[in-house]
Design a binder for these strands. Structure first.
Lengths: 205, 205
DNA sequence: AAAGAGTTTGACCAATTGGTCAGGGGAACG
DNA sequence: CGTTCCCCTGACCAATTGGTCAAACTCTTT
């Protein structure tokens, strides 16, 4: 099942329900901490029925991760040599922050995976992800060499952008415990702060 | 057992072995993902013997977390109004980064706990942690009001420091997958980058 | 060296967990 | 309207897991 995409309406509906439920559960408990019963209950299906659509627990998790990795790196792919370098980078930060706001479960799914040693995606990190980061680091290094931005180590710049933006999704509980915001209101302040942070850090000279 | 600190040598040795093993296992698998068998094996003890020293799985986890929280916030407590504000803050960043380098397991233990919703420490976050952060945020706000640092939102400044420094511990696998560093060599570059980042961002005017 | 505390273990248990399977019900389609 | 897939379930299973317990062993103290 689920090898060539959904076909019938029932399949489409149930697979979507399973993946949504699994995203809830995996992102909140990690792979080992999640149970099929939890996922089945959250999806409104019986466990055997769940296993009718997915071969096993790993298959659900793998499907979620591969779906995620596609969209997760889109903002970085969009970092191009088209406009002003500082605007490009700040735009990237804002896109990343917006993803943290609208897709916190996906961010936490990824965070769980990495914190626990990336057992399922290590090859992707060392392969395609590294290649993409290498490419963008070279672009940033070029901007620095041309004096269009300050001389910063591009890899650590990228790490800091990942860290500061994903923090609002991954450590959401802590952020809310300290700020007690109304809904997502604190994201506006976060955006202002990060905009200031990177504009200042990257201004040439 | 373990209610009033170790007494005999055997207790001291075994409790230390258990906590060290548990830190390995919990930080890598989260609370639910960790098993008593794993911890016992890593500590070189049998499972019943492990449970002779700790009442249950929760007790081990709780002990680790409370030990950790004490030391974890020390760097922030050290943020005082004694020297130059920018040096104070950069020192804090460096102390935090050094903790990420020397205590990555502790950082990941905490990260696992927060990512998974902080079920065991939510009260501490909303209580003592919030109080401490409120206090330091007021200090930073005072510096900004006095024009001694740039006008930044102090809470988000603190979040960004936590995020950027702990990233090197929590996402260690990813960082290493991209940089392939020799040992901890990349921490020097990280320190240089973060120093630049915060000096630029905080410079007044 | 015997008492007595402290330490360790094998055997065991109930609950949970990932997963299977045979068969029953339902929708679609000729 | 009957057949043929597709969908779903209850019952079940083996392995794992957190935890217990009585008995045995070991170390210290008198």
């Amino acid at each position: 099942m689920t090898d060539t995409g959904p076909r019938t309406r029932i399949q489409e509906r149930n697979i979507a329900a399973i993946l949504d439920a699994a995203l809830d559960v995996f992102s909140q408990a990690g792979f080992r901490g999640a149970t099929l019963d939890q996922i089945a209950r959250a999806a409104g299906l019986s466990k055997p029925n769940l296993l009718y659509y997915f071969k096993n627990k790993q298959a659900i998790h793998r499907e979620l991760l591969s779906e995620l990795l596609d969209t997760w790196l889109d903002p970085l792919r969009g970092l191009n040599d088209e406009g002003d370098p500082i605007e490009e980078i700040v735009d990237y930060v804002m896109r990343k922050l917006e993803m943290a706001r609208t897709m916190p479960r996906e961010s936490r799914l990824f965070a769980n995976e990495i914190v626990q040693g990336a057992p399922h995606v290590l090859d992707i990190i060392e392969g395609p992800l590294k290649a993409l980061v290498d490419e963008k680091a070279a672009l940033i290094r070029g901007w620095a060499a041309a004096g269009r931005i300050a001389a910063v180590e591009p890899y650590h710049l990228i790490f800091s952008i990942w860290a500061t933006t994903q923090h609002y999704a991954d450590f959401d509980v802590q952020v809310r415990g300290i700020l007690s915001p109304e809904g997502d209101a604190h994201f506006a302040d976060a955006a202002a702060f990060l905009s200031h942070l990177y504009r200042r850090a990257l201004a040439p000279g």
